[in-house]
Amino acid sequence: MSNLFTERVLNMTAVTPQPEDYMGEDGLLYCGKCHTPKETYFPEKQAALFGRDRHPAECDCQKAQRLEREAAEQRRKHLDTVEDLKRRGFTNPTMQEWTFANDNGKCPQMEIAHFYVEHWEIMREENIGYLLWGKVGTGKSYFAGCIANALMEQEVAVRMTNFSAILNDLTASFEGRNEYIERLCRFPLLIIDDFGMERGTEYGLEQVYNVIDSRYRSRKPLIVTTNLTLDSLQNPLDTAHARIYDRLLEMCAPILFTGENFRRETAQAKLNRLKELMK
C-alpha cells in the first residue's frame, strides 16, 4: 500500500515539458512562454521521503489560465443563482424586465430606488421599507421591480407578489397557512404589489393582517405599492383596516408617486405608431 501511495505521489510530481520549455540556471524547468518556473524544490525532509528534489509549480501563464477557469465557473454559478432567485421571486416573468437598465428615465423617484439598493445592508439591519403610493400607472410597480432585480443580481432573495395571489395560495393550502406565511417572512425582502386591490372580505382582511403582522414581527423590511392615498391609510374607516395600515406605516417610509400615467402614455404611443403604419 505504501509503494502504491508513493508511486501516485511521484506521478503527481512529474512535469511534462513542452517543446518551448527550457532548463534554467537553477536546474528547474522554465516555461518557454512566460519564462517563469514550472518546478520548485522540495524541502530537504520531503525530498528524502519521496526520493526526488522537486515538484511541479504553476508558471504565470498556467496560473492565469486557472484563474480564468475559476472566474468563468464563478460567473456561471452566479448566473444560475440569479436565474433561480428570479424564477422563485417573481409571480410574473415580465417583472424580470423591470430593471434599472431598462428604465426610461421618466420616473423622478428612481433615484430613491438606487439609494435603497446601494444601502441595502442598512435597510435590512434597521428594517426600513417603502410605501409607494400614488395614482395608477405612475411607475410604482416598476420602481419596486427595479429594487427586486438589482438585489437578486447581488444574490439576495426577494419575493415580489400581491395579496390576490397570496390569498389564492392560502385558500388552496389552508392546512399549511402558517407554513406559507413563514416562508414569505424568510425572504430578506418582501414586496407586496397593488396593495388594497384584493378582496375586502372578513377572511381576506384577516389574512392580510396575518401576513403584514408576521412580517412586522420578523423584523425584515417590506416594500408595498398601492393606489390608496396616504390620507386614507392614515385615517381608516374601521378597526380591521386600521390595524393593517398602522403596521404598514410603522414599517414603511411613504413615497408619493406623481406625474403622468405611463401606461396611458405607452398606449397613446402605440396608437400613434399604428396610425403611422396605416398611412
Results as ranks from 00 to 15, higher is better:
236 P>L: 06
162 N>E: 05
76 R>M: 00
37 P>F: 05
64 A>V: 03
181 I>G: 02
204 G>Y: 05
8 R>Q: 09
196 G>A: 12
132 L>T: 01
264 R>M: 15
188 P>M: 04
159 R>I: 02
183 R>C: 12
140 K>N: 08
170 L>G: 04
204 G>N: 07
104 N>Q: 14
267 A>Q: 15
41 Y>E: 08
37 P>I: 06
85 L>I: 03
260 E>P: 05
122 I>P: 00
39 E>H: 09
114 H>P: 06
132 L>Q: 01
261 N>F: 05
102 N>T: 12
21 D>G: 11
11 N>H: 06
171 T>A: 09
268 Q>Y: 11
20 E>T: 08
224 V>C: 05
180 Y>E: 10
243 R>T: 03
59 C>L: 03
132 L>K: 00
275 K>Q: 12
77 K>D: 00
263 R>Y: 08
37 P>R: 12
242 A>S: 11
31 C>W: 03
97 E>H: 08
118 E>S: 08
112 I>D: 02
176 G>D: 15
215 R>I: 03
99 T>C: 08
35 H>K: 15
276 E>Y: 11
137 G>A: 10
243 R>W: 00
42 F>S: 00
234 Q>F: 09
33 K>T: 14
6 T>E: 11
204 G>E: 01
215 R>P: 02
247 R>N: 12
78 H>Y: 00
216 Y>R: 13
119 H>T: 14
147 I>C: 01
271 L>I: 14
98 W>N: 01
36 T>K: 15
233 L>C: 13
161 T>R: 03
26 D>T: 06
104 N>E: 14
255 I>T: 09
41 Y>F: 12
210 N>Q: 15
217 R>I: 06
